[in-house]
């Protein structure tokens, strides 16, 4: 069947396109230009070709930061997704308790990133912080500025505290969208609680979960303010994630060329992962 499509509506997208051109495309082009040059000032610059890319890809510090970044993102996804589903399943379905739960669960989402870092920085201090002090009194040696494992555990805990609510809220809305008839059919079949979850709730949650995982992956892959405030990247460089390396390079040392090359590599990784998720969402919708 041949369908005639009117494509004139695309012209209505032009204003947004112009806006995106100035806010994203032109700056990105500039980054590409910087990545192949050694720029000192507006008049002193040298073309270096792909040298920065070779350097960045072979930099052991950046390679380990990249591995750490993937490790971090997968760890928090492994914790946040099951936990978020669990919280969504436990939340009351209607009445005043449902509203109260929604407000309580979404509270962490409303706190700015650097404030989250500050809250946890104080929370984990051994002298005045509730968690740090309690652990110290219990005889547990815990110090995020000396012990890399402690710092990692705290950052993961902080991220879980801050972002599990997002997954929980997405799943909650997904669960509310399941018609009551499905549950009635399950009751007639005397399906167990697990069977209801496995064959009704989880399949219906797939779409919101893919969006949730995509958002959490991208956000955690770009994480900056929270670990920066909490640990400053330390101890040593054990919690220095990619964005912090990038900022140090570009703003701190003013190495614009290497920083530009590195941001392009960073961008390509995020682009590839996002595309995979996007395709997964589109294909899962096509099958229905």
């Amino acid at each position: 069947m041949i369908k005639t499509e009117n494509n004139k509506a695309w012209f209505l997208v032009l204003p947004v396109f112009a806006l995106v051109a100035f806010s994203a495309i032109i700056p990105l082009m500039t980054v590409v230009n910087y990545s192949v040059q050694d720029v000192f000032d507006a008049h002193t610059r040298y073309f270096v070709g792909t040298e920065w890319f070779t350097k960045m890809l072979n930099d052991p510090a950046l390679q380990s930061a990249l591995l750490k970044q993937f490790g971090f993102s997968f760890t928090i996804l492994l914790i946040e997704v099951p936990l978020g589903i669990g919280i969504a399943l436990l939340m009351p379905k209607r009445g005043w308790s449902a509203s109260l739960c929604l407000v309580l669960v979404s509270l962490p989402l409303l706190i700015p990133l650097n404030v989250v870092g500050t809250i946890w920085q104080i929370f984990t201090r051994g002298d005045i912080g509730l968690m740090g002090w309690t652990l110290r009194e219990m005889g547990v040696s815990y110090n995020i500025s000396r012990n890399a494992v402690d710092a990692w555990a705290t950052i993961i805990l902080m991220d879980v505290w801050h972002w599990t609510p997002l997954i929980a809220l997405l799943c909650y809305s997904g669960l509310r969208a399941i018609p009551e008839a499905y549950y009635q059919a399950a009751r007639i079949d005397r399906a167990s609680r697990w069977a209801v979850f496995r064959h009704i709730q989880l399949p219906k949650l797939t779409n919101v979960l893919i969006i949730g995982v995509l958002l959490r992956f991208m956000d955690s892959f770009m994480i900056y303010a929270e670990p920066f405030v909490l640990t400053g990247g330390g101890p040593g460089s054990s919690t220095t994630f990619l964005s912090q390396w990038l900022t140090t390079m570009a703003v701190g040392q003013f190495d614009l060329g290497p920083a530009a090359a590195f941001s392009l590599i960073y961008f390509l990784i995020i682009l590839a992962v996002s595309w995979v998720f996007y395709t997964a969402i589109m294909n899962s919708q096509k099958e229905k």
Binding site: I26, M29, T30, N33, Y34, V36, Q37, A42, F47
Partner: peptide
């Protein structure tokens, strides 16, 4: 345009 530091290859 000079702020965009164009080069021929890019």
């Amino acid at each position: 345009m000079s702020w965009m530091v164009w080069t021929l290859p890019t």
